[in-house]
Write a protein that binds this DNA or RNA. Structure first.
Lengths: 176, 176
DNA sequence: TTTTAATGTAATATT
DNA sequence: AATATTACATTAAT
């Protein structure tokens, strides 16, 4: 089991061997290995990232000099960082969408234990979730009322026509 | 010490549920068990791998559908596979290099037993190895002659100058 | 212990 | 610059 150490501060150095070329001299392949940024570098980079996704060339230059990295490396770091946060953002969106789509039907019937024992004002099948905003609740309620009206209207006027036409209705805030 | 995580690991979830995808697993903490590919899947994957180790997106997509895997899973499989064969290839190279470097000095003085009792045409300290080609033999011989000449020249003309200048000489075929 | 599915990231290429 | 994808290092399950 390799105990991970991130102390990559040490560059590999050619070990000074005997005068005659030894086996290692030939066999040791000095491939540059993969470069990993140091914690300090990470710190400064992400600190700056909070201020701006896309630092200017000049800013990159200064940062690179300070961190002893090339401009290109800094640029790549920012590119990958942007990609990462975008990816996370997208996935979060996906997740939120799922939650928002399901929050009505999430039964939560099992009052399992110990969770918010205070008398909730919410209906028992409407669970609280920080991603579900009041506007979402209202939107869903509106959609429900709309659908209910539709059903009522259908009941009142007997339709001789085929009812297979599903009442497709453009819904407000189709969950983004 | 700020435990800075380059790759913290320890977050083994997110199972990317496959086609069966019931939506209940939104809040459910799924089993972080590792998925193993089936023999059938392995068969098809490695069969395709022989044709191309870097399948296109489309090809991956079709394969994924056929195997009931996600595109990502197929991609990861190919990545790991490539890494594996590269690793093997490198190690083989290393081994060959070592053999080539050592084939002169591999003494084999001890006529231990039972190995190729036929009267060999090779000098007794030059063992045959399929990786050592004639050109390698000739190269080493040439290098040896060169070095011998060098030594002879030194012996003939007595050098009053400091001899610390190691006679570094560019060698032909420095073993790849 | 070895093999391998999976993750994280530096780097490259395409558009 | 966004996006996709690769190699490489590493983690963790088998």
């Amino acid at each position: 089991m390799t105990s991970f150490n991130h102390s990559n501060g040490l560059k590999r150095q050619k070990k000074l061997s005997s005068v005659v070329g030894s086996e290692e001299d030939i066999l040791m392949d000095n491939k540059p290995k993969r470069k990993r940024i140091s914690p300090d570098q990470f710190c400064l980079l992400s600190e700056l990232f909070q201020q701006t996704d896309t630092p200017s060339h000049e800013l990159r230059e200064r940062l690179a000099k300070k961190l002893e990295m090339t401009n290109r490396e800094v640029q790549v770091w920012f590119q990958n960082r942007r990609a990462k946060v975008n990816r996370a953002r997208l996935q979060e969106q996906e997740h939120v969408k799922k939650v928002k789509f399901n929050y009505w039907s999430s039964s939560s019937s099992s009052s399992s234990s110990s969770c918010s024992s205070s008398p909730s004002l919410l209906p028992h099948d409407l669970v609280f979730h920080p991603d579900v905003t009041p506007i979402d609740i209202l939107a869903t309620a509106a959609a429900y009322v709309q659908q209910w009206d539709e059903q009522e209207r259908k009941k009142q006027v007997v339709q001789p026509t085929i009812t297979t036409t599903t009442t497709k209705r453009k819904s407000w805030r189709p969950w983004l």
